[in-house]
Amino acid sequence: MLTYISYRLLQMIPLLFVISVIVFVIIQLPPGDFLTTYVEQLRLSGSDVDASTIIQLKAQYGLDLPLYGQYWVWIKNIILHGDLGMSIQWNLPVSEVIGDRLLLTLLISVISLILIWIIAIPIGIYSATHQYSWLDYAFSFVGFIGLAIPGFLIALLLVYFVFNLTGLSVTGLFSPEYEGAPWSWGKLLDLLPHMIVPVIIVGLSGTAALIRITRGMMLDELSKQYVITARAKGVSERRLLFKYPVRLAIHPLVSTIGWTIPALISGEAIISIVLNLPTTGPILLKALMVQDMYLAGSFLLILSVLTVFGTLLSDILLAVVDPRIRFGGTRS
């Protein structure tokens, strides 16, 4: 088990390296470097930048160096100092801009993930064991809609209908009095009811997908020989269901967690723009619009690194629950 984990950890290093290169290239794609944009912006706002600051910034981010040198400075700053660069738009270090927002994005994504599993797996099992019942059809239909209509459209329609019916606006994550306030119990309690709508919308398509996958897997497993064996032993239907097919159907799902999280974060990015949530989505969009590339690049990098670790975690989890992987057997 330990060798397996350390092997997987070692595998990650080149992956993370290539991801950082890709992100760096994306940062460099827009014409000009961030310093010129920065100086330009300061000049427009009336304040002049003295030459020494420019030289200092140039040295700090290695902007005189060739591209690979710039990459080296950039990645060294990140790894050694946790310095993700400057946001020209906010005139603040990137880490200060994204801190809270990243936390909220993760919070919404993880809660959605948990809800998806709690809701989708039982429904999937029910649908498979009651195939072609009217509830099965109903779940399939809702699932179809959930899969077909993207979150941002659902968010848009939901905002409209809620406003139309109740006059309430479901956007934002905090009441106005807490918006800029530091974290406190009051703020946390205020956050919870505001999270309901985003969590539901973010989780909807994932739930639909997971119901579908669970149902398919269960139908597959239910027709397998070992189910008949267990039945022939005299095991009761309920016990049989949960001991064998359910466990076997859930195993492959465990390995999908790693992919679900990036999908959730992706979906959250757009939904948060529509719902105007103080998470990473809107700020990433704005950063991209004004080419605040260190900010945008940092988001991309952090989200990708989180995904890599998520995948690792789900693989380890799978190895823990599935003996066939733990003992290196063949999967039949």
Binding site: K224, Q225, Y226, I228, T229, D322, P323, G329, S332
Partner: peptide
């Protein structure tokens, strides 16, 4: 059963 590989639960 005919195929013990399939007739046993693999996990």
């Amino acid at each position: 059963f005919q195929e013990p590989m399939k007739a046993f639960s693999p996990i």
